[in-house]
Amino acid sequence: MTYAYFPGCTLKTKAVDLDRWGRESMEALGITLEELPQWQCCGAVYPLAKDEIASRLSAVRALMAARDQGTPLVTLCSACHHVIKRANCDIAEDETFRSRANAYLSPETPYSGEAQVLHYLEVLRDVVGFDNLSRQVKNPLTGVKIGAYYGCLLLRPSRQMAFDDPENPTILEDFLRAIGAQPVIYAQRNECCGGYVTLENQGFARSRAAAVADNAAAQGAQMLTTACPLCLYNLQQGGSLKTVYFTELLAQALGLKEGAL
């Protein structure tokens, strides 16, 4: 099985671990992630303004390419997923945006949201299956207490993201169970890490990350895992717990990545 894949800028530079172990693990699970040809930056932030058309176009371009290939579009970075998924909802629901985006890009077949956007975790849950995944685990992470850190972008706003319960998500915990680890539930797992504000106001971002990590640690977590490079950065800067990408844990459990946690 082959899916179209949108890695995003950060995964090509600072977050190569998220990308590399994600691809290799998926390959081992029987699914090839084929990078979209000539993809462009998703824009990193979803424009909340109704009249911002241009900044949503690169996402539409990626969606169109996936539609033309006839496969779902898989993302890995939370920010890319957020932007692309919401742009897809917009083009399906907002007529003004749809007609203007199509007018700019003038594709052979107009695009109106036909592509399916899947986050890597959704592929694990819904295509591979967590039961099936747990059977393929070679090095279970037995006894490791891990706090899943969701952050904001995967979950909210839930009406568009439709990823998991925005206040009580389970997908990362189910993933952690499948690879043999022990998920730790803590309330701050869906509170902001400080986001891009880290650039201007490091102190504030660090206090956010600390609140997240302290809560996880107090509930018994030994480490944190995330799907977002910016979350990882902020948690590493301000948090007291080791933080890794979930694909690293996956690769380790599947026996693809060596080394201790």
């Binding site: 932030v45 880290t198 910016l230």
Partner: peptide, 9 residues
């Protein structure tokens, strides 16, 4: 260490 994502954002 700052990820590109933060800069673009």
């Amino acid at each position: 260490e700052l990820p590109q994502q933060a800069i673009t954002s």
